[in-house]
Design a protein around this nucleic acid. Sequence first.
DNA 1: AGCACGCCGACT
DNA 2: GTCGGCGTGCTC
Length: 815
Amino acid sequence: METVDIVKVAVETAPYAIDKVYDYLLPETLCDQVVVGMRVMVPFGRGNRKSEALVLARTTGEKTPKMKAILQVLDEAPVLDGKGISLALWMHQRYFTTVYQAAKTQLPAGLWYRMEEVYQVAPEVEDLEALTLPEPAIALLKVMKKEGRLSCQAVCARCGADGEGYLPLLVEKKLVVKATQAHRKHRDKTQKVVSLAMDDESAMALVAGKKRSAPMRFAVVEFLIAAGRSAITDVTYFTGASLATVKGLEKSGIVTLSQEEVLRVPEVTASVQGAPIALNEEQQHSFDQLLVLTQKEEPQVALLQGVTGSGKTQVYIRLVQAVLAQGKQAMMLVPEIVLTPQMMGKFASYFGNRVAMLHSGLRTTERYDQWKRIRRGEVDVVLGTRSAVFAPLERLGLVILDEEQEGSYQSDSAPRYHARDIAKYRCTQYGATLVLGSATPLVETAYAAQQGQYHHYYLTQRYNQKPLPEVLFADMRQELRNGNSGAISGLLRTELEKNIQAGEQSILFLNRRGSSRMLLCVECGQSPQCPHCSVALVHHTANGRMMCHHCGYSEKASMYCPDCHGMMKQVGYGTQKVEEELQALFPDVEVLRMDADTTATGHEKILKQFGDEKTPILLGTQMVAKGLDFANVTLVGVLSADLSLYVDHYRATERTFHLLTQVVGRAGRGELTGRGIIQTFTPENDVMIHAAHQDYQGFYQTELTLRQLRRSPPFADIFTFTVSGGEEGAVLKGACTVRDTLKQVLSHPELEGIAPQVLGPAPAPILKVNNRYRYRVTLVAKNVTPIRQRISWLLREFPSTHRGLNLFVDCNNMS
DNA sequence: AGCACGCCGACT
DNA sequence: GTCGGCGTGCTC
C-alpha cells in the first residue's frame, strides 16, 4: 500500500447523525497550501456535492478505497488556531452540535462562505441551432454560452422567470451542468496607496523644472512631501490631479502605487483621557485579591458580588490595566452594549485604539475587520457582547463577565452556548482568570462560590454612600376590594403626586411578560389567532396591523369581529393602556413611554429627553430596568410584580428577584434618597420581601432550598428535548419515543448515583410555530459524560427512524 | 413491461 | 441534509 498525505476534516454538510472526522487525500498541488485550521472544499456524499470542511489535522497514512481528495483551499491563513479547534471539539460534546457548526460559531459572519448553485452549458454541446427546443430555452443557452457560469438569480435577471423555468429541463437533458461555487459575500477592503519612490529632494528636482508645463505632477509630489504616503483618492481630491497624472508619475518611476488593506473599523471616540482611578478601601481590597489571581499560572474563577452603584466598573478597569501591564490581553463582556454607552466611553478613554468594541450595532464588515485587528494582535482589550467571547486574543489573561446573571449570555440559536461556559473553557486553555460580576448572581454561581469552587469577593457600599431606597408594597387585592381595578394603586398615585409637586422624577416599570396587547370581540369573545402559530395576534397601533411575533405574519386590524361582526376591543396591560390611565390621573403631566414598539434608536432619544428635560414620568418595560442612572429619580414603581413569578420555568423566582432588585435600585442614585413601590397581589411572598429589602442572601437561601427539593440547577441539570414536525400526532408519538428511549437507556446501574428523571411529553408553551407542532420531554440529570453520551446516541439515532420530525436538545435554558 | 414514488441507508 | 438504489404498486 502506498503512503499518502491525508487531512482530517470536519465537514459542514454532514448532519449531526453522521458527524465525525473524515479523512481526505491531500493532492500534491495543494500540499504546501493546507495548514490545520484552514477551510477547504471537499466532495461529500453519493452525489459528491461540494461542501466546506475544516482541517483539524494533517497526517500521512495508507490510502483506502473510499478516500476522496480535497478540491480547493478556501483560506490563505488558518481561521482557527489549535485552541479554537479544541474549543470546537468541546462545544461539539457539550452542545450536541457538529464540529463544523461549533467552529463556524466562533468566526465572524464576514468570514463565512456562501454556497451558490451555478449553471453552465455542458462542454460537449456545440451547435445550439441544431437542438429541438422551445424558443426561450434556446435563448437561455445562448446567453449562458456567452456569459459562462450563471447563478439561478443571474439567469432570471437575464432571461426572465419563464427562461429560468427551463433550467431543470436543460439540466435533465444534460445540456446544462449544475455546479456548486463558494464565495464570500464580504471581501477584504483595499485601497490604492501612493508613495514617493525616492527621497523628497530627488522627486522635487524631477518635477520642479517642469512646473509650468506639468503643474499637476508638481502638485502631486508637493502634496506627497507634505502629507506622506496617502490614499490615491486623497491625492486626487486634494490636488485636483487626475488618475492619469498619478499613473504617469508611476510610469516615470517617481511614485509607487500599492494595493493596501484598509480596515472598516469605527473610530474610537475618547472625549478625554481617563483619569487615574482611585479606589475606596473595599474596592481596593477586591482589586488586590483579584490581581493575585491574575498572577497565577493556573486558571481561576472569581465572583465579584457588588450591590448596584458599588463601583464594579472601576475595579474592572484597574484589573484590565494590571493585566495589560503583565503583557497579557483582556476581554470584557457585557449583556447588551447599546445599553452601556458609559462603559464604551470609559474603555475608550482608558485604552484608546487598543480596545476593539464588538457590539450589535456593527455591520458585518466592521465586525469582521475588528476580528482581523484582534487576530493580528493590534488590540489588547476586547469589549463586547456574547459572541465577543470568541475573539481570537492569543495572550488572553482575563475575562470579565459583567452582570453575569443576564439571560442574553446564552445564544438563542443553535448551538445554544452560554458565554460563561465558553469563557470558563477558554480561561482554562490560557491559564487566565474569569471574573463574574453581579449584584444578584445566579443561584448556581453563588453556590459554586459558597462551595469554594470560585473565589468570592464583595462590594457592599454604594459609591455615593446613599442608603438603599425604602420600599413599600401596594396590595393589589386590597385595591380591587376598594373598587380600583386600574393599573395604578392609591399608594402609587399619592407618591407620584408628591414627586410631581417636588419636581422630582419617577420611573414606572411594567413587567409585560405573560400579557400582550390583543384584540378581543366584545360579543363572542374571539380574538384573532395567527394562521400558522398557536398564538393570538398582537395588536400594533403604530401601523394598524395585527402581527404574529413568531412567524412574522400580519394582517390589517379590523374594528369588527370577522365571525360575528361584533365590536373589537383592545385588551391586555400594555404600556399604552397604562399611559392612558396616567393621563387621566394627571392630565397636565408629561409621560414618556419606552417599550418594544419604540425602536432601538428611539430608546436613546427617549432616555436623553428624560435626563435633559426632567420629564416627570418615564413608563417602560424590561429595558428601563437596566443600567439607567438618573440623579433626579426618587420614585420607582413596579406596576405588576407578580407577572414574571407565574411563568412555568425553574428560573421564574430568580428572574423576578433580579428584576425587582434592579428596578428598585434605580431610585435614589443622586443626592436625594429614593423610594420604591411594588404593586403585588402577593405581598407576603418571600421573593417580594427579599427583593424589597435588597436581601440577596435571604433570597439565595430560600431559593437554594427549593432548588434542592425540585432538583434544578445547581443540584441537577435540566435537558429539554423538543420534537417538532408538521403533523401533531406524529410529533406527539415521536416525543413519546424520545421519553421511552431515554428511560430505557438511562436505567443503567452505572447511572444510579445520578438518578435521571424523565418527564413528559408536554406541548411546548407555544404548541405551533410556522405550522410546525412542538412537544417537549424533560430530563433531569447531572450534565456528565455518560449522560451526554446517551443523549448524543439518541440524537444520532432519532432522525433515521423518524423522518419528517426534528429533534433538538437544550441544557439549562435561560428563557 | 414500464415507470412513479417513497423508503432506506450511506456519506472519508 | 441529499443522493442513488431498490422495492412496491399502479398504469399503459
